[in-house]
Design a protein around this nucleic acid. Structure first.
Lengths: 187, 187
DNA sequence: TGTACATCAGTGAACGCGCGTTCACTGATGTAC
DNA sequence: TGTACATCAGTGAACGCGCGTTCACTGATGTAC
């Protein structure tokens, strides 16, 4: 039956939130519309009152996850002006590694997204820029070197997290995180 | 009809080669058994004379791609003793970025693999070790710092390549590659 | 060396399943008067 | 403010499609004598 506009808007928000969590945790191909809707205790049919397609949801979920993780006081967003160490430690923490569903969407979906439609990849590109902007709080400056160090830091952070998650050898997984944390601080 | 043992062995090799190329290029979920077999001009049925399942093929394809890219004179394998620059330049080249199907399987499949079966993830872990061993030709030494720099370099290389591939903004994609190349050389 | 039979690589159709999407329907909400 | 009607959020089943896997079959290859 019909729901009030506020209820409908809240349902939409809940769909995006659940999708953002599920896609990061199990990959884009690993999550179906039915999974997302049943996470809210709803059935599939209702989904298409809110979104035109799964692709549209994927794009919005990445955007939401990106904003959520880089603004406010979430996870690695503990970026302190001119102090890169705190942000690096947060991003490369075991907590962040072990909870991808709640973490950086750039790290969680970077190879998944390579095979998605252009619109989705553009949202991902915006998410990457947002990550680099967050790093800029810790590594400020308008010099060429500062800009390069931000991009370099982004690459090292994402690479280390992704490799640490993919590895079954827990010693190696921890070593990648520790080595990257230490070396990045010295740069 | 039945083929000779040599023919059969060659077919098996061709299946692994085609799979290694296709999985890297289009992702594990993006490639079906029919795609792999039709790349050889064969039909699906024959596949199961050689492999027990798609999972088994995935594992073997990753292994093959890993060996192929880290030994001999392929792509980024131009590692020169004590000279990291050549290897870094090769790995972070536009050629490598624009041809994932022929490149490092660790970079091509790092988030895909996170949602695969344990056996596949173990093969991936071996591939990561092999990448670090290749880096060890350029960055040798048994000190703690040398070991850390190898893991750090692996993270930065993989992260930069993956981000450069995922980004739609070609300026940003190139900048990530260039910045990482430059910064890694200074470490 | 030659012959009869067993083996098995590859074919092509079929099966079962899951997934994205559609649709007729329900009944509460929103709106026009 | 009250009433009659239109709207539309959500249901649950169905559709179409692609994919991994199976299977009966074919005929060349390998083997036993």
């Amino acid at each position: 039956m019909r729901r009030s506009r506020e209820d409908a808007a809240e349902t939409r928000r809940k769909i995006v939130d659940a999708a953002a969590r599920l896609f990061r945790g199990r990959g884009i191909a690993g999550v179906g519309i039915a999974d997302v809707m049943s996470a809210l205790g709803m059935t599939v049919g209702g989904f298409y009152r809110h979104f035109a397609s799964k692709d549209a949801l994927v794009a919005e979920a990445i955007e939401a996850a990106s904003v959520e993780t880089t603004t406010g006081s979430r996870a690695f967003a503990h970026a302190v002006k001119g102090k890169a160490a705190a942000m690096i430690d947060g991003y490369l923490s075991r907590l962040h590694r072990d909870h991808p569903d709640n973490g950086c969407p750039v790290a969680a979906l970077c190879t998944d997204v390579a095979h998605e439609k252009r619109a989705t990849r553009e949202v991902f590109t915006t998410a990457l820029r947002r990550l680099v902007d967050t790093i800029a709080i810790a590594i400020p400056g308008d010099t060429k070197d500062a800009r390069e160090r931000r991009l370099f830091t982004a690459a090292a952070l994402v690479g280390a997290l992704v490799l640490s998650r993919a590895t079954t050898d827990t010693d190696l997984a921890d070593a990648v995180l520790d080595a990257t944390r230490k070396q990045l601080r010295d740069v």
